[in-house]
């Protein structure tokens, strides 16, 4: 399922000087931006707990995944960043193995980058004497890891499509899933389509679409609730599996050879 060479060389790719500089700046920038206002206003009491949720959120893992993982998947265009996939797939390497190896390496990378940010954030918080207001629990760590694996699978799926098609498709569908329900509100409720109020249908379709593309997981909900809530967990696992399956199907369909570029 996992190819050691692909897995290890996905990490090695980060060792390029430009990527290292980008990584260092990114790791330093966000915690510094968050802590600086607190340092400027020492008397103001602030609840720091939501910041942890911010670091572990799918939005953050998606941003990191796009910044540091995306160009190493299925990229044949850029000579500097890309891989020679025609050569790679002439080797005994299943395309599914390539996808799973990239996903695992990418997810670990995302966890590591956000983990470094959190460590730096904790150091800064302690330096300004507010360490007591902040604690990171077990569930936060699990949330970070799960969201990293979920969103990296999404990024892998997007980049399994040729060129920028995946990114454009994802952006369009994501926008549509939020914008369409708002737009149908503008249509008078007397407007029927074959006798059916299609506004509800559109809203339901958009909700399903949004749930497919954005399925955050919060372990606090499961651990704190008395009754077990299965649906979000099932949705998260099935979405992640579906992203990877689609990525494998797309990669298997594609022909990586210079005669058809």
């Amino acid at each position: 399922m996992i190819n050691k060479a692909v897995f290890l060389y996905t990490f090695l790719r980060l060792a390029q000087p430009t990527t290292v500089i980008k990584l260092v700046l990114f790791v330093l920038a966000i915690p510094t931006a968050l802590v600086y206002p607190l340092h400027q206003a020492p008397d103001v009491s602030v609840d720091l707990e939501p910041l942890i949720s911010f670091f572990a959120s799918p939005v953050m893992t998606l941003v990191v995944s796009f910044m540091f993982v995306s160009s190493s998947i299925g990229n044949t265009k850029s000579l500097d960043d890309g891989e020679y996939l025609a050569l790679l797939f002439s080797r005994p390497l299943h395309r599914s193995t390539y996808i799973f190896s990239k996903w695992l390496a990418g997810s670990i990378l995302v966890c590591a980058v956000i983990g470094l940010q959190l460590i730096y954030f904790i150091i800064l918080i302690n330096m300004i004497g507010r360490g007591a207001q902040f604690s990171m629990g077990f569930t936060d760590t699990i949330n970070l890891a799960l969201n990293a694996f979920g969103t990296t699978a999404l990024v892998v799926m997007i980049h399994a499509f040729p060129a920028k098609i995946g990114v454009i498709l994802f952006a369009a569908l994501f926008y549509l899933s939020f914008a369409a329900p708002l737009m149908v509100q503008l249509i008078p409720n007397t407007a029927l389509f074959f006798g059916v109020d299609f506004r509800n249908t559109v809203k339901t379709a958009c909700n399903v679409l949004r749930a497919f593309m954005y399925s955050p997981i919060d372990m606090d909900v499961y651990l704190s609730s008395i009754k077990m809530v299965w649906l979000p967990a099932v949705s998260f696992v099935s979405n992640t599996a579906l992203y990877l399956c689609i990525a494998v199907v797309i990669m298997n369909k594609r022909e990586f050879f210079y005669t058809n570029e």
Binding site: D81, E83, Y84, S90, P92, Y258
Partner: peptide
């Protein structure tokens, strides 16, 4: 694939390596 080797016409190998 285990017994196959390939030299491509375009040597656009992973430039960062």
């Amino acid at each position: 694939k285990d017994i196959t080797g390939f030299v491509p016409e375009r040597p656009h190998f992973d430039a960062w390596m």
